[in-house]
Amino acid sequence: MDAIILQILNGLDKGSAYALIALGLTLIFGTLGVVNFAHGALFMIGAFVAVTVSRLLTLSHQVIDETRTDFLGNPLKVDVPYIYGWFGESTGAAIIDWAVPISILIAIPVMILIGVIMERGLIKHFYKRPHADQILVTFGLAIVLQEIIKYFYGANPIPTPAPQAFVGSFDFGALIGFDANSIIYPYWRLVYFGFSMVIITAVFAFLQFTTFGMVVRAGMADRETVGLLGINIDKRFTIMFGIAAAVAGLAGVMYTPINSPNYHMGMDFLVLSFVVVVVGGMGSLPGAVAAGFLLGILESFASMGAVIDLIPGINQVIIYLVAIVILLTRPRGLMGRKGVMEE
């Protein structure tokens, strides 16, 4: 039983990332009708916003320490962050420690801007082109973006730790009456899950309870009629693209303490996120979220030793197997709308 609870917990944080990326993907598809293969790259860029903020906060000048030597035998040059001089060492260290949460504030405008530039600069030219063209151009864009990141940051993963307050794990098993050490769960993964729930709720609330959201939903249902009413729906959809980019970016920022970011991390999530969107139903926001968590949890279960012993290799194919079964039984996905991608 404890093993099952543990894998559900593991699936929740993995599912959170899938859900956040898939939410943005399906939002873009639902509004603009674009299959955006560059969405994984937005997740990756978000993670590198955190890396950049962390590097900016640790910008340093060098002080020579005569008591120690470097690898060439010269006096050691010790890096001292400028921020120590501005705020004092303890406050400066605390600010650096909280680099990832601070990055959230910076990532929101940066990602919205990147999203709007991406949509206005490139993707809008492909609205009326076939989906295959959209996939090619956005996939090409994803490769360009990841190569740019690799050029500036290298190919090696860059450790970007969580604040000290969230380092380590807690004994969830002991809390609910199981043996000690039976269900250990890292604090930051819990934070990630909570954060993703807040973002998902915020996106749904924005679409449900604001006039802007109402117009966007109306546009998703019938773009032409909304246009005939004199509403500039294109402008709103561009903003929605920016919001979708911000959601992916925030998912990336918060993911950096879970796995050290590298230029390729977007591609690692992209294919799975597309499966999530398809399973959830193209264009369905609740479907994307539900499928994200469902597939995340199933993937965790399939990685259990007992399951692999029973069906070797199941951990590598489970998501695709489930996708096949769902698409065979429900061709529109779990919550897909009639008429979407069926023309």
Partner: peptide
């Protein structure tokens, strides 16, 4: 126990979580 992990794996949490119970 010996467990094989896919080369493309990025998050190893589901492989690591059962270790303490083993």
């Amino acid at each position: 126990n010996t467990v094989l992990t896919p080369l493309t794996q990025t998050d190893f949490s589901s492989y690591i979580a059962p270790v303490l119970q083993s």
